[in-house]
């Protein structure tokens, strides 16, 4: 009786192993599932291809640039925003050209806070039209939300503080999500 039970257990276990190896339905954990749906991890020395939204001719154009890859999203986001400020097209946009990146933070609710300051320490006022200011804000917001789908919203600070506007028009007391109607069809 005992021998029969042992034979049945061994046979059952063997059958189960054969079934698994033959590709039958498997219970997959959510972690495994996520790993399967995301692209294979890039090598650390591979550049990160970032889409930058830059103000041009009353709209946002997009350019793709290669930036240094970072293991953490916060560092990577900072690298991408720094590239936006350094981009030739970005430099030509009046408001972007008058700002510099101080810091960038990502919090647990996937809100990115971008801390900006005037490019020149002597500059007391950023002078821009409402349209230029709007495009500058959404250049940052769209760049971050496009490259990092995990980012839910973006807040902007000036010199570490919540400020009403950058140049007197666009409300910075709120958080922003992606806006696609400002993007130029290319």
């Amino acid at each position: 009786m005992t021998i029969m039970a042992l034979v049945l257990i061994v046979a059952g276990g063997g059958g189960y192993l054969w079934f698994r190896m033959a590709g039958g339905p498997q219970a997959v954990s959510s972690v495994q599932q996520e790993a399967q749906t995301t692209a294979p991890a890039a090598r650390p020395d591979e550049p990160f291809m970032a889409t930058l939204f830059v103000p041009a001719d009353g709209a946002l154009g997009n350019v793709i640039v290669a930036v240094k890859r970072h293991p953490e999203l916060q560092l990577q986001a900072r690298e991408v925003v720094a590239a936006l400020f350094a981009a030739d097209q970005g430099k030509r946009a009046s408001v972007v050209n008058e700002l510099r990146l101080r810091a960038l933070y990502l919090d647990a609710s996937w809100t990115v806070t971008v801390d900006l300051s005037a490019a020149s320490p002597n500059q007391k006022e950023i002078r821009a039209s409402a349209e230029d200011e709007l495009l500058a804000v959404y250049a940052l917001v769209n760049t971050l939300t496009q490259n990092f789908p995990e980012v839910r919203q973006v807040r902007l600070l000036m010199d570490g503080r919540v400020t009403q506007t950058l140049a007197g028009h666009i409300d910075l007391s709120r958080a922003y999500v992606k806006r696609t109607d400002l993007v130029k069809n290319q």
């Binding site: 709007l134 804000v137 028009h169």
Partner: peptide, 16 residues
């Protein structure tokens, strides 16, 4: 449409 700081507290039809 734009998120304008000037208009949000105005209790009337408002444009910039």
């Amino acid at each position: 449409q734009a998120p304008l700081a000037q208009l949000k507290a105005v209790d009337a039809a408002a444009v910039l």
